[in-house]
């Protein structure tokens, strides 16, 4: 495990990046800005365009959000209970969730970009 100060520096750095990325991400789905309606923004056609045009930006959002959210979650859980077994569990949970989200998120993007082929 990295030192606590390193983790929290990451928490703050990712917070700053999220303020930019997440604003753009939400604006992309807000009615009346890039699409006339919310529903239009989540149509498969719009989503395809997003993944194909800003796919790597979406992965950047993914990475930043996962790091920030999980360090935050870890903090809350460490406050909730104390003890070496709980701390080990929390660290495991956070790494597990991170691996799941990063794995699945990149899988989706790579599939859209045609690098991996959707098996279904």
């Amino acid at each position: 495990m990295p030192r606590e100060s390193t983790l929290h520096l990451l928490l703050y750095a990712t917070a700053g990046l999220l303020a930019v990325f997440l604003t753009i991400h939400v604006a992309l789905h807000a009615p009346g800005l890039f699409y006339d309606t919310y529903k239009e923004s989540v149509q498969r056609e719009s989503v395809r365009k997003n993944y194909e045009n800003f796919g790597w930006a979406l992965v950047a959002l993914l990475i930043v959000a996962v790091i920030h959210g999980l360090i935050g979650l870890r903090g809350i859980l460490l406050e909730l209970r104390q003890g070496p077994r709980w701390e080990a569990f929390v660290n495991f949970l956070v790494v597990f969730l991170g691996a799941y989200m990063l794995g699945l998120g990149t899988y989706t993007l790579l599939t859209w970009l045609g690098i991996i082929h959707f098996g279904g």
Binding site: E4, S5, L7, H8, G75, Q82, E87
Partner: peptide
């Protein structure tokens, strides 16, 4: 201070 239960909490 720079601990899990230090200043970051």
């Amino acid at each position: 201070v720079d601990d899990k239960h230090g200043v970051w909490r």
